[in-house]
Design a protein around this nucleic acid. Sequence first.
RNA 1: UGACCUAUGGUGUAAUGGUAACACACCAGUUUUUGGUUCUGGUUUUCUAGGUUCGAAUCCUGGUAGGUCAACCA
Length: 556
Amino acid sequence: MEESHSKSLNFLEEIVQDDLAAGKYPEGIFTRFPPEPNGYLHIGHAKSICLNFGLAQRFGGRTNLRFDDTNPMTEETEYVESIKHDVSWLGFQWANELYASNYFEQIYQFAVELIQKSLAYVDDSSAEEIATLKGTPTMPGTNSPFRDRSVAENLALFQAMRNGEYPDGAKVLRAKIDMAHPNMHMRDPLMYRIRHVPHHRTGNQWCIYPMYDFAHGQSDSMEGITHSICTLEFDVHRPLYDWFIHKLEIFPTHQYEFARLNLSHTVMSKRKLLQMVNDKLVSGWDDPRMPTISGLRRRGYTAASIRNFCERIGVAKRDNLIDISLLEFCIREDLNKSADRVMAVMDPVKLIITNYPDGQVEDLLIENNPEDPETGKRIVPFTKELYIERDDFMIEPPKKFFRLGPGLQVRLKGAYIITCDQFELHADGSVKEIHASYIPESKSGQDTSGIHVKGTIHWVSIPHAIQAEVRLFDRLLIVEDAGELGDDFTKFINPESLEVINHVFVEPSLKQANIEKAVQFIRKGYFCLDKDSTAEHLVFNRTVSLKDTWAKEQKK
RNA sequence: UGACCUAUGGUGUAAUGGUAACACACCAGUUUUUGGUUCUGGUUUUCUAGGUUCGAAUCCUGGUAGGUCAACCA
């Protein structure tokens, strides 16, 4: 992951560099990745992960993984496990695995301290009353009737809250700031609420839980986080973040905000992703169409390609919509170098080499990866009867069609040049089989025929072919920007986002296919074995197609 | 009609007062036993009006546009 440092710095790197140059952090910087364990991580989190860990790596610091688990109603251990798995799969090692819930006692003491300083009070108002008194962005709020309780009374009430003497919603603890503040977050924000709900880590130990604003900055501070990076929507929280730290007189960590990632043709909010999972519009969080880390992984995306993507999109403070084609470029770039080439026929039609001896099998040696000669060659059996791709043959081929048609010649990849002599049709007019003759002197690697053909097509020997299932994926949404879509976004899910092909014929070497190792089906795309695969029933996911300039040409 | 954030090709991101560049996408050609890859070239940019300056994408002021904030969510 070592990279040249000649590239210009992004604004976060500049901040860190300046801080370091000013000698602010002689012990190095400290960042953190702070997910709430209430869902699976997605590509937007990957950006944050790469930013936080990347900053620390680049400037010689460390990064904590901290679960922001202050709301027991939505959080589960299942999510904790998946998050840890995803972060380490992406290739990052955290300095410490931490939980905001580890700090509940300390945060409680911080609250007591603020009460003692007359900077916090217990409010008996209902949620509705509090909302009403809060005012609006253009109208100042009104002080709560409970705002001026004595320190002693507040202390006693807060203790009673902790002791479980009140039902959910009966009381809250609020900071005493300014109900007329132009920033809504400064109008006596809530610090604690009552929730008689078991927590995934602390069980029934607590029935009061701190709010995000009274937990996040305190956690950052206790951990000595030097640069607390979050997304733009927390920008308006920063005055409050700073206010608590200042009043508590604890380690002054600083918050910096960046614009979150938006990807075209997909959704990026946890709520919407959860909705698709719950409504069974996808098979789960790891459906290969999902923008989740687990979905991308199952789809065949490599960790390196995702890291590279995060590097390329950059980071700034303006809203963005990244074209999904950049993600596709990143995985193609990676797999082109690393994936072995194999042959698979997705839509088969029979090809008979009429002048090839019956029953003869030739073991041809074909290169695994022209990008990397070190990968060597493999054996591919060649026989008289083959499958080729149905769309590699046309009865009446147009001008620039470099494939098979009556009288036309092509090379069979790694084998011989053939000439199409005739074809037979089914009753419905579709092609039943194609008859061709091969040119013995044109054998791949020892071609003395002197014939030059423009097209090379892939093939599979019928008696050796393995039948497999292939799953093709397309963009999840038919619209580019899901940003303005509401709950009805499901209406825009691409009905063709998943296509299953049951009868694909692959070359016999794929018996050794490995779930970790991507392959390229020549001329068709990059594929990986799906977890649904068994020894008897291979299932391949298409990670991404190859660029197809012929398809483009045809559309003209 | 409050506070805050942001405006650079189709999409992103650089340029830190001194020739607007890089990547993706798109187009053309090259190479190729993958219509893949490679390589070469091309199209397309500083929201607007003023101001400061020898010089402004950059600094200042106004305008315009987009976004965030009024959860006992994070």
